[in-house]
Structure formats: structure tokens, C-alpha cells
Amino acid sequence: MASTIRMRAIANGETTEVQALVQHPMDSGFVKDSKGNLIPPHYIEVLEFQHAGKTVFTAFWGPAVAKDPYVKFSFKGAQKGDDLIISWVDNKGQSDSVVGKIQ
């Protein structure tokens, strides 16, 4: 099974721009399935990015974040070839993480 996380991090001078996409239903709890039953809420609560042992970005998300969520941010102090560790945990306690290289 492939990772749920796709990441693009590009170092440009002192700033690194990071984009990430996570495969996740982000069910809001307000949508019904084909049988008319409410699909229970299922969404990522925390998505975290670490570089060199430091948290460089945290997303706290609610059920209003779109399916297969996306985020973009920038931070300083990283170089091409550095590792970026990405992890998430959702409201059901499921989680995933990945180590990606900054390009």
C-alpha cells in the first residue's frame, strides 16, 4: 500500500516552499450515504511537518477541510537534500507519516 501522503518541497534560496496532499475522506458527518444513513465524521485533526527535529508547521483541521486535503506553506532554514518529516492523525486515531526530501 502506497503512502497516503504526497509532498513537494522546493528550496529556493533561504526559503523552502512546501505543498502536501493527503489521501483522506475528510467526512464531515453531515453527508448521507446511498442508503440515506449519515456517514460519521472522519477527518484529520493534526498534520505536522518537522525539519531537523523542529516542528516547522502544524495544521489543526476540522471537518470543513476538503477531501484529500491540501496545504501550502513556506519556512526558512532548510536546504536542498534535507529530510522533511510529515505526519497526520485523525479523529479515529488513524495516522500515517512519511519522510520526504527537500528538492
Binding site: 485533526e45 493534526v46 498534520l47 505536522e48 518537522q50 502544524t58 489543526f60 518529516i85 510529515i86 505526519s87 497526520w88 492523525v89 479523529n91 486515531g93 495516522s95 507519516s97
Partner: peptide
């Protein structure tokens, strides 16, 4: 690296 849900 596991994201920590307690801070949510």
C-alpha cells in the same frame, strides 16, 4: 514524528 492530537 507522529502528529499529536492532544494539542488539537
Amino acid at each position: 514524528a507522529a502528529a499529536d492530537a492532544s494539542k488539537w
